[in-house]
């Protein structure tokens, strides 16, 4: 079963991350890297994303027209910070992985459409 784990958090948490001292951020990175290493056999892809300030959103009107805006499309206070594609047996296994995510914040587990 393939799922995507979407790692999210609040804007404040994102800003805190961006402005934290280098050595503190490095420690946090080390924990995240360790999580990726420990779960390496189940992870098939994924990236950390650059901050939401770098996002550009294109809205399509369905008639060939489009509108481009600055910023991410999710409204409200939550932002996506990255994602990982995983291959595990079932939702319980995905839940176990998500529960040990050292990045804090929110993890959304979405099964992918199999084709």
């Amino acid at each position: 079963m393939k799922y995507v784990l979407l790692f999210g958090g609040t804007r404040e948490a994102q800003q805190a991350w961006d402005t934290m001292p280098d050595d503190v951020r490095q420690q946090a990175y080390t924990r995240v890297e360790q999580w990726f290493r420990e779960n390496g056999s189940k992870i098939t892809g994924g990236y950390q994303l650059q901050s939401p300030g770098t996002a550009t959103t294109v809205r399509l009107d369905g008639n060939g027209g489009s509108m481009v805006t600055d910023g991410p499309f999710i409204e409200g206070n939550e932002v996506i910070g990255g994602y990982a594609e995983i291959e595990v047996g079932d939702l319980d296994e995905a839940l176990r992985m998500a529960r040990t995510w050292p990045g804090g914040g929110i993890v959304e587990i979405r099964p992918v459409v199999a084709r």
Binding site: M1, G89, D90, L91, D92, I109, P111
Partner: peptide, 14 residues
């Protein structure tokens, strides 16, 4: 079905 919620008794830890 779509999210593959398993049909089993949870492990001792859970």
């Amino acid at each position: 079905r779509a999210a593959a919620i398993p049909y089993r008794i949870p492990d001792a830890g859970e």
